[in-house]
């Protein structure tokens, strides 16, 4: 004890204390937030709903109406469920920057708590898809089955390697690289914007889990052949050969036929 009390006056002691304090706060916070997460799966508290309503009125009601009933500039949110809010707000698509053919993904405007509160409020407007079960997002499903489902149901818009693709009149299906498992799941569940709804009656929760597993597998393992050139298929390959391939070859031909000094 004596040694400790002596070292207490050491100039570095303040820093050590600070670090310890910060660490403790971090651990406590992470425990608390996991607890919150667990609570989110089961349901929302009354405070969540009331806080959510305040946020909604301030940020969303202009387009979606005071009670989410919709208006000329925004669809009704009755029955879209918490999952839709978590997807739209969590990926930054809502609030929209401006009216256009499609809402773009951007950094989220609300933090995790605020998003949860908004979701809690919208969930009270009418029954709809709730937030996905954590167990369905673990990426431990059947990647092969997920791949099959993905190719039949998703690849035609999102591309076989999930690199995205064009839709009509300025709309597009975004790339799925770097999208959180939760958001992929919610998008299938709710059919945001022009994406069709893949309800649990169409693709079961296990099927969705398989799709998420497949996407996360191909994303994490990367391309065995080296750089993937955007996974855009023959167009990027052809462009690469014409620009880089022929470019290098032409540089060599010029060197080859030039006179040495």
């Amino acid at each position: 004890m004596k040694a400790l009390s002596q070292k207490r006056r050491h100039p570095l002691a303040v820093i050590a204390l600070l670090v310890m304090g910060l660490l403790l706060t971090g651990v406590l916070y992470s425990v608390a937030s996991t607890a919150n997460q667990a609570k989110a799966d089961t349901g929302f508290s009354a405070t969540d709903v009331s806080e959510g309503q305040k946020l909604f009125v301030a940020n969303c009601a202009t387009c979606h109406g005071m009670n989410g009933q919709g208006s000329a500039s925004g669809p009704s949110l009755v029955g879209v469920g918490a999952a839709a809010v978590d997807f739209q707000v969590g990926t930054g698509r809502m609030p929209m920057q401006m009216q256009g053919p499609q809402a773009y993904r951007k950094p989220p405007q609300f933090n995790a708590d605020q998003t949860r509160q908004l979701a809690a409020f919208v969930a009270t407007l009418g029954a709809g898809p709730s937030l996905p079960d954590e167990a369905m997002l673990d990426g431990k499903g059947d990647a092969t089955h997920g791949g099959e489902l993905f190719r039949v149901n998703c690849a035609m818009c999102h591309n076989a390697a999930a690199a995205g693709g064009a839709l009509t009149r300025g709309k597009f299906a975004p790339s799925l690289a770097g999208v959180e498992a939760k958001h992929i799941y919610e998008a299938m569940e709710t059919g945001p914007q022009n994406m069709p709804v893949f309800s649990d009656a169409n693709i079961s929760p296990e099927g969705k889990r398989d799709i998420v597993t497949f996407l996360k597998t191909i994303e994490s393992q990367g391309s065995p052949g080296g750089a993937d050139l955007g996974s855009l298929g023959p167009v990027s390959e052809g462009l690469f050969m014409w620009v880089a391939g022929l470019g290098v070859i032409i540089a060599f031909t010029i060197w080859l036929t030039s006179r040495t000094s």
Partner: peptide, 24 residues
């Protein structure tokens, strides 16, 4: 990488991928 056939999957008449193009 060129022609990552492992991305495309085996031929099946039902699916299709966005960006279906032939070689240049």
């Amino acid at each position: 990488t060129i022609n990552p056939i492992w991305n495309y999957g085996p031929y099946d008449p039902s699916p299709v991928s966005a960006g279906t193009q032939p070689d240049w």
